[in-house]
């Protein structure tokens, strides 16, 4: 599904990613953990194609194509989805409208007929249930006045509607209380499928208790220092990151 080789990327002329290698098979769920400022969101943004995140070396192949050739929206149409760490508020732009425009752009790209308003509303109502999102949120401005937890739930809801092949969840568990975390995790698990790969960026073991990853990576100082199974996350939770750094330096 995704193959990243020796990826270097800069923001504002400062190198943040310093040679990332990462391979994610179809249907796999990978967790990326790592200290603050280590480059996790930078990697997410590079994958989503954000302006200002400049790739200076390396390659990213997605479904056998060079991902870096695609514009952000083309990536969405081809099945890449980023759930933002900090979803922006867009007052005045209606949630449902934004999503319908996105879904229909994707469908046009795939040569499918566009969804009319009725079909679309039926689809979103269904998906809203998945994350127990009150449908009244749909008629509000995008993330406008949403609580932190509501914003995160909205991200997962949008993912459910757009049905990506590769989902990148950047700290979707942060800022959630335990009930909200369970709801979000339940939603993510429902979206897990043999055709869908996921990258979950997280600081906490808790999420991984609910959504068991196939592989756990430690990203620090712009590199992946260690990879392992779910038990690695537990060890990180207990021991922190320093030992990984020391081990890598040794």
């Amino acid at each position: 599904m995704l193959e990243i080789k020796n990826l270097h990327a800069e923001v504002d002329g400062r190198e943040i990613l310093k040679g990332i290698d990462l391979r994610i098979g179809t249907g796999e769920v990978h967790a990326i953990m790592g200290p603050n400022g280590s480059g996790k969101s930078t990697l997410s943004n590079v994958l989503a194609g954000r302006e200002g995140y400049e790739v200076t070396a390396g390659t990213i192949m997605y479904k056998g194509r060079n991902l870096l050739d695609l514009s952000p929206e083309e990536r969405v149409w081809e099945g890449v989805f980023l759930a933002f760490q900090y979803p922006v508020e867009i007052p005045g732009v209606n949630n449902a409208y934004l999503l319908r425009a996105g879904v229909n752009a994707k469908r046009r790209h795939l040569g499918l007929p566009e969804l009319d308003a009725m079909d679309f509303m039926q689809l979103v109502r269904e998906k809203a249930q998945l994350v127990e999102l009150d449908p009244s949120f749909l008629s509000r401005g995008v993330n406008e006045g949403f609580s932190g937890g509501e914003k995160k739930r909205n991200e997962i809801f949008q993912m459910a509607v757009l049905e990506p092949s590769l989902a990148i969840l950047d700290e979707t568990d942060s800022g959630l209380d335990i009930d909200a975390l369970k709801i979000v995790a339940k939603g993510v698990n429902k979206l897990r499928s043999p055709e869908r790969s996921m990258i979950m960026v997280t600081h906490y073991q808790r999420l991984l208790d609910y959504v068991r990853p196939d592989v756990v990576h430690v990203l620090a100082d712009g590199r992946i220092l260690k990879s392992g199974g779910p038990e690695l996350a537990q060890e990180l939770d207990r021991r922190g990151y320093d030992w990984v750094r020391e081990e890598a330096a040794a």
Partner: peptide, 12 residues
């Protein structure tokens, strides 16, 4: 905001 919208599939 523009990036967020593109990340949901809207063109520029």
């Amino acid at each position: 905001q523009l990036f967020y919208m593109k990340a949901r599939g809207l063109d520029d």
